[in-house]
Simulated assay, not measured.
Amino acid sequence: MTYFEEDTQLRDILITGGDALMSQNKTLRNILEAVYRMAFRKQKVNLNRPEGEKYAELQRVRLGSRLLAYLPMRINDELVDILREFKEKASRIGVKQFIIQTHFQTPLEVTPEAQEAIRKVLSAGWLITNQLVYTVAASRRGHTTRLRQLLNSLGVVCYYTFSVKGFNENYTVFAPNARSIQEQQEEKCYGNMSEEQAGELYELLETRTDAQQESKEDVASRIRRFMKKHQLPFLATDRSVLNLPAIGKSMTFQLVGLTEEGKRILRFEHDGTRRHSPIINQMGQIYIVENKSLAAYLRQLGQMGEDPEDYASIWMYTNGETEPRFSLYDYPEFPFQPTEAVSNLAL
Rank of each mutant, 00 (worst) to 15 (best):
G320V: 06
L294T: 03
V110R: 00
F167L: 05
I280A: 06
Q337F: 08
I247A: 02
R49Q: 06
T135Q: 06
L67Y: 03
R224E: 00
E309Q: 09
T16Q: 10
Q105G: 02
E183G: 03
R239V: 04
R60Q: 14
N170P: 03
N76S: 13
G17S: 11
L235Q: 02
L108C: 00
R41K: 13
M22H: 02
R264T: 08
M1C: 07
W315R: 08
S163G: 13
E200Y: 05
T172A: 15
A175E: 09
I279Y: 03
D310T: 11
P107E: 12
F226N: 05
L345F: 01
E113K: 14
A295K: 12
F104Q: 00
D19W: 09
R275D: 13
F326T: 06
V110P: 01
F336P: 15
R275N: 14
M1V: 15
G18Q: 05
S163T: 02
N46V: 12
L204I: 04
T16G: 14
V256W: 03
Q303S: 11
S240D: 11
E88G: 03
L301N: 06
L244E: 02
R179Y: 02
V289D: 06
L10F: 08
R140T: 07
M316H: 10
A34N: 15
F104R: 00
Q24D: 14
Q59F: 10
M73S: 15
D307G: 12
T8M: 13
I13V: 15
R225K: 12
R62Q: 07
N30C: 08
T172M: 10
S194D: 07
Y3H: 14
M73W: 00
A124P: 09
G64D: 07
W126M: 11
R49I: 07
